[in-house]
Amino acid sequence: MVNTILTIALAIIILSIAITIFRFVIGWTTIDRVIAFDIMTISSIAMIGIIAYLSNRIIYLDIALVYGLLSFLAVIIIAKYLEKSL
C-alpha cells in the first residue's frame, strides 16, 4: 500500500519535471531557464528521496544533499555572472 502510493507520488514528480523541462526549452530569457533548472533540481531532491526509500538505500540521500548543494552554488554563480559582478 505504502509502496503503491509512493510510486504514484514518484510518477507525479516525474511528470512535473517533464513540464519544467518544457519551460526550460521554450523559456524566453536566460533567467527563465535558470529558474526552471532550479525547480528541476528541487523536485529531483524529493524524487531521489522517494527512490532511496523504494530501493532501501540510505546512501542515495547523500547524493541528494550533494546535488542540492551543487545546484545552489550553480544558481548563485550564474546569477552573479549575469549581473556582471563576477
Binding site: 502510493i5 507520488a9 514518484l10 511528470l15 512535473s16 513540464i19 519544467t20 519551460r23 529558474i35 523536485s43
Partner: peptide, 20 residues
C-alpha cells in the same frame, strides 16, 4: 507519511504548472 509525500508531489506539480 505516504499521503504526506503524495501531497508534496502534487504541490510540486502545481509549481511546474505555475511555471508555465
Amino acid at each position: 507519511g505516504a499521503i504526506f509525500t503524495l501531497i508534496g508531489a502534487l504541490v510540486l506539480l502545481v509549481a511546474s504548472i505555475g511555471l508555465i
